[in-house]
Design a binder for these strands. Structure first.
Lengths: 156, 156
DNA sequence: TCAGGAGTATCAAGTGTTTGACAGCTGCCC
DNA sequence: GGGCAGCTGTCAAACACTTGATACTCCTGA
């Protein structure tokens, strides 16, 4: 009644075999494939996808704090601290003191960081373009549907 | 030329600020939200999403080997071994000797495993239904678009 | 004025996964 | 037959992230 399932000898087949066709599986597979390709293409630049994500976030909102960044990226502050430490040691990221709050530290890109981000973003844009070229005018539709799914799930 | 970017003093703004609007970001956000909800709803059953994924894979293709499973789920064989060990210790999964190959071990669900999978799948189906209800007739469209993206990315 | 709440950063321990290396079994080809 | 590629499973170390706990800073309100 609830969903189609294969009929065996008796009615015992509680779990459908169509599980691999579900929307959430397609979602997972696709996201995994995209992420894998990004990682693959970014590796020659010596940058992990997580590094790129952090850099472009700071680029979009300079002065972001670690905790705020953690919320944006859905990870814990410690994970951010680890990434920041690495990027800082490479001279791509800078921790400045907050003007009003001594304990808080703002994050800013250095020139080297901007340069690295630029190179990485070219790679990402290339991937993005390949996808949108394939989709054509359906791109906006896909994004709308994805947002709708995210919305439906979030109010849980 | 390639994509719109904000103009500053000079033409120096190599990285677009529209990065958060890209399709791959929407994809990532949505997948993350779905996965988080699954994890949340599965926790009361004492099962992680990874366990569910493994169980239903074995259910769909009984006798699967660990290595083959690793390829299916895009993780390393060690990760599978870790999950299998846990599920086996719970009596939900069984390792049998391959009929022709002594060193290889086939994976099969036990009755307890089928029962646990059934309970977990009810939860997952509930989530799936909430999504498809929200999408209505657009569900098939979304799946087609996702598959198209996966295809476009995979031939890289 | 100063005690407490809110927010941030960081240390320590535990968990899960990957990377690298290695041994066992089978089947093929010389 | 014997060597050798190919695949599987597993051990050890490294790595990334989370959970739990603690300290620091600012702000607010009694």
């Amino acid at each position: 009644m609830s969903y189609p399932y294969r009929v065996t000898r008796n009615d015992e087949e509680p779990v459908g075999l169509d599980a691999l066709d579900r929307v959430t599986w397609a979602l997972r597979r696709t996201e995994l494939a995209v992420q894998t390709l990004k990682e693959q293409r970014l590796r020659p630049l010596g940058m992990a996808a997580a590094h790129y994500t952090l850099l472009i976030s700071v680029h979009a909102e300079p002065g972001l704090t670690g905790a705020e960044l953690a919320r944006r990226l859905n990870v814990t502050p410690q994970a951010i601290a680890s990434l920041v430490a690495r990027l800082e040691s490479r001279g791509q990221l800078e921790r400045r003191e907050h003007p009003r709050h001594r304990h808080i530290q703002e994050l800013h890109l250095t020139d080297a960081g901007r340069e690295a981000l630029r190179a990485a973003d070219a790679v990402i844009v290339g991937i993005e373009r390949r996808i949108t070229d394939g989709l054509g005018s359906e791109t906006a539709r896909l994004r709308a549907l994805l947002d709708q799914v995210a919305e439906a799930v979030r109010e849980g």
